[in-house]
Write a protein that binds this DNA or RNA. Structure first.
Lengths: 343, 343
DNA sequence: TATCAGCGCTAATACGCATTAGCAGATTTT
DNA sequence: AAAATCTGCTAATGCGTATTAGCGCTGATA
């Protein structure tokens, strides 16, 4: 560690030229580089090669505006295993796109307990722009970001916060509506909804897609809560005469499905189940629920590309929703004849 | 984007003081900060609060040496799904430790097809030090790293490269030896080894732990290759009269186990199987192989802590191996009486 | 012969911050 | 009353680079 880093001044001294000349040799813009004859250029380059000199990116950044670094900010830690399956696909897309575009990623770990973008020691600004991941999102910080001049893109749709928020989200509204239509096409007209209908945008979107798509079907039961006792939920569903139930939470669907199976109620024979969204490795629980898939990797990619557009070309705010493909699954079936008779 | 970033000069102007005073208010070293009376300090801090000013970390880094950023370099992309299970646990540990120590992570994506540390535009140096992940490792680059003055720590044991390499590795030698002893204790003395015994350090370590631990047992069959036809491998094992076989690759073990089951050969009744290492979610294939676990998360943590030690205190090179706990599993059993008779 | 245009390079500056040296005025000491 | 000390600040500098302005020189042009 004793040896100090090499600088352009050192190279200049060794090559018998000035620091400016070294700089020109390194990043010869056509106009200026041409003015340096091959002989001098070779001499300088030889010294650079011999010494293994590399320009200090920090100093570089001082002069130019940009750093070719994108920040990735998450309000929750990105890797801890509980979150890993959630965050990993996004990061996958982000990393691939960043690599293709020639950017590195600065992972902001949030220095303290509470993660904040506008904190005391915000190293975020080291990046040229930033991608924001995570379900929770401090409204005030979002507002400040929108108001500020630091380029960012959110992964996931966001309501306006003192202005439109640039984002790449999932088309949950359309995906949900498509699933409802599918259920309707299969004859279901006594439908139920289990899950929150307010809070985060991603949650609200399910409900926004759901209700209008009913289109005359009867919403016989709603439960705007999650993680309730599955037995009671099932009782309520049956009492209401629902033939098809939509869950926002996979976990709830799994629990209710298990109870139903235990009681000899056939899914989808007696009751169809639809889940509004998917999870990685959903297959592990042995049931392929009818749902839509969230294109997490593509969202990460698109957000990265959008961010670079904003950083490099000062592009205007964009808001993009990516399609959520329907996952057929085994839990949505046609209305049984028995139900048809009962109605 | 029209509004330029705020600088200390702006704050100074607004507060009616000099830029130096603003700097003192921000990072008041006890001696100097005391010289600024509370009145002035409050005035400056109010402006800072009102404007939301944050110091540019790049400029900061220009002056001080450090940035509180650790680079994470991987020769392979870190997230793509095939690698995700491999890299994620390391990153988990790295991120947690970095967060605790107050560092951010710079993920180096490798600009082109071939990832190199010493490239044309090495952004690595923006970090204070760097952690190197990945199975493949360019020998020349490692040598240059060792020779250079840039602090780094490798995850995984590395042979000397013009000097000792600082690393945090897994105790594969000891783990392998422990498994061999376990097999011996169960009566096995006709043992086989399937897998490479040269190449990467992690591979070599298995063999190094394996052979001496035989301690008189007969090595009746070796196959220094992976991904061979499992049927043929099994034939060879049986022909050699092996009662216990060690695999370096989980995939090979799975394949041979499947063929054995298909042929009605009992594992571990007729043949015990040991795998030298584990994989996340190994349970998915439905077989709990006897093996040792690789403490990936702990390795990430330890490497990060070691790196910070090197960065902050210029600590000497350390080489650490973390214990690999034995995973009991279901595939190593006592020598069957039939085998005992045969011998 | 004086002027001008190119050539090959260098001096000087700015980027935003931390930090050292130091200045003017007030207060205390001798 | 002069000297020393303290108080509250600012000027100036350097970190390593990119870049603009410009200098001294040669050869061509007027």
């Amino acid at each position: 560690m004793a040896t100090r880093r090499l600088t352009q001044k050192d190279i200049a001294r060794l090559a018998g030229v000035s620091q400016a000349t070294v700089s020109f040799v390194l990043n010869g813009s056509p106009e200026n580089a041409n003015r340096i004859p091959a002989e001098t250029r070779d001499r300088v380059q030889k010294v650079i090669r011999d010494t293994g000199y590399v320009a200090d990116p920090v100093a570089r950044r001082m002069v130019k505006g940009l750093n070719r670094i994108l920040g990735v900010f998450t309000y929750e830690p990105a890797f801890p295993s509980a979150q890993a399956d959630f965050f990993t696909p996004f990061l996958l897309g982000i990393e691939e796109a960043a690599q293709e575009l020639g950017y590195d990623l600065l992972l902001l770990t949030g220095a303290g307990v509470k993660r904040r973008i506008f904190g005391d020691n915000v190293r975020l600004r080291l990046a040229d722009g930033c991608i924001i991941l995570g379900r929770q999102f401090d409204r005030d910080e979002l507002t400040r970001l929108v108001a500020g001049d630091f380029p960012f893109v959110a992964v996931g749709r966001r309501d306006d916060a003192g202005g439109p928020v640039p984002y790449v989200g999932g088309g949950y509204v359309a995906g949900t509506a498509a699933l409802v239509q599918r259920a309707r096409a299969l004859g279901h007209h006594r439908i139920a909804y289990i899950g929150l209908n307010e809070g985060a945008e991603s949650t609200v979107d399910r409900w926004i897609g759901f209700e209008p798509a009913l289109n005359g079907a009867e919403l016989v039961h709603t439960q705007f809560a999650v993680a309730q006792p599955p037995g009671e939920t099932l009782d309520a569903l049956l009492a209401a005469g629902a033939t098809c139930v939509f869950f926002t939470e996979l976990a709830d669907a799994i629990a209710v499905d298990a109870v139903a199976r235990h009681r000899g109620i056939s899914v989808p024979g007696d009751l169809s189940i639809v889940v509004l969204g998917n999870h990685i490795r959903a297959e592990e629980h042995g049931r392929r629920f009818t749902s839509f898939s969230i294109p997490r990797e593509a969202m990460g990619r698109a957000a990265t590309e959008m961010l670079v557009r904003r950083v490099e070309n000062d592009a205007p705010v964009e808001q993009v929703l990516l399609d959520c493909a329907i996952v057929e699954g085994d839990t949505l079936g046609p209305l049984s004849t028995q139900h048809v008779r009962n109605t």
